[in-house]
Design a protein around this nucleic acid. Structure first.
Lengths: 183, 183
DNA sequence: TGGTGAACCGGAAAGCCCTTCCGCTTCACC
DNA sequence: GGTGAAGCGGAAGGGCTTTCCGGTTCACCA
């Protein structure tokens, strides 16, 4: 695939990913770039060369978890009746979005910095959720006219932190939304 | 109440409000301060003296509409059966939140600049919505355990602009959420 | 009417942050 | 071990918010 040209570049990239994983978890997706580069022991220029858009960094950090969540869709639909599979997957997805501080905001904010993250995220999740929705629709267990992106957006929005409410508050709201999907 | 000490100060305050009304409508709640001061023909210092927090300015601009929305609660509950009154008021509230560009974001964002706006907003709306919820609950038309702030937050969140979706998209999501309130 | 102090103004300055850019360093390969 | 290019770091530039203070303008009183 990519021929890693120089060992030091490779090392720096690793250090950046490592630092980003920690900083993003601690300070959220919008942490200042300098915080990451300081921890990684590199200059900001290095960060921007490896990850021209902030999205690229976030994608690299979250890639694994995003993929795992997407993969869970097939498993659930094989093991559960349609409506249950849908509900369980949405809760799984909610967990992903709600846990990573700032991910929810990044997914909806209008600013361009996170656009590629949004694209990656939704392109990964939409087919999975579409299949679940279709199965539920065939079983008559969901109101018609609901698209995958509607749910993806709604959950991302509802999971944004609300000042003054305990974390995990978004999950309660998602449950109400889920109930609203009944026919 | 406040004795307007100097006529020029009064004039500037008026010009700022006027300008803010236009700019906030055009460029959203997060428009640069300079855009407002330029249009008002004053220096930034003047803006900050009159409105130390951004919230103060936004509150001043929206006060009237917020009050009107709150007042609609009593009218609706007098004229409609409980569940309908609740649904209609939530749609009214949705309209307010969704129409003012950036208001939805300001209501949920964690940053301190808008804190007073949130407080004002929710303190004004909560009692109204609480009354509607209680009436609906007595009629058995709403699931138990729902608090006013839950709905206020959920709507504010769902109305945030989603890139790539038409404006008013949030209203569809709110409708699903509303359906989820059924017992 | 004209003088005076306080209220008020404007914009320069300081502080953050992101992003670009380029001279210097370090590597890989011959 | 010499050399060209890949890669580095941080200074510089630009945007924004917020503070601060010298200068201006007003209101009031004589």
């Amino acid at each position: 695939m990519s021929s890693p040209r120089r060992a030091d570049a490779q090392r720096n990239l690793g250090a950046l990913l490592e630092a980003a994983k920690i900083v993003l978890a601690e300070s959220g997706v919008d942490a200042p770039a300098k915080e990451i580069t300081d921890r990684a022991g590199v200059g900001v220029g290095t960060l921007y060369r490896h990850f021209p858009q902030r999205s690229d960094l976030v994608i690299a950090v979250l890639e694994h978890e995003i993929d795992a969540c997407a993969a869970a869709g097939a498993q659930l639909s094989a093991a559960q009746p349609p409506a249950a599979a849908l509900a369980m997957w949405v809760r799984r997805y909610t967990e992903l979005v709600a846990t990573k501080a700032g991910l929810a905001s990044a997914l909806q904010a209008g600013d361009a910095a996170h656009q590629r993250l949004r694209v990656y995220f939704y392109e990964r999740m939409s087919p999975v959720l579409d299949a679940l929705i279709e199965a539920a629709a065939r079983a008559g267990e969901i109101r018609p006219g609901v698209r995958a992106v509607d749910i993806l957006h709604a959950v991302a929005l509802l999971c944004q932190p609300v000042p003054g409410e305990e974390p995990g508050y978004g999950r309660r709201l998602v449950d109400v939304f889920l109930a609203g999907l009944r026919p």
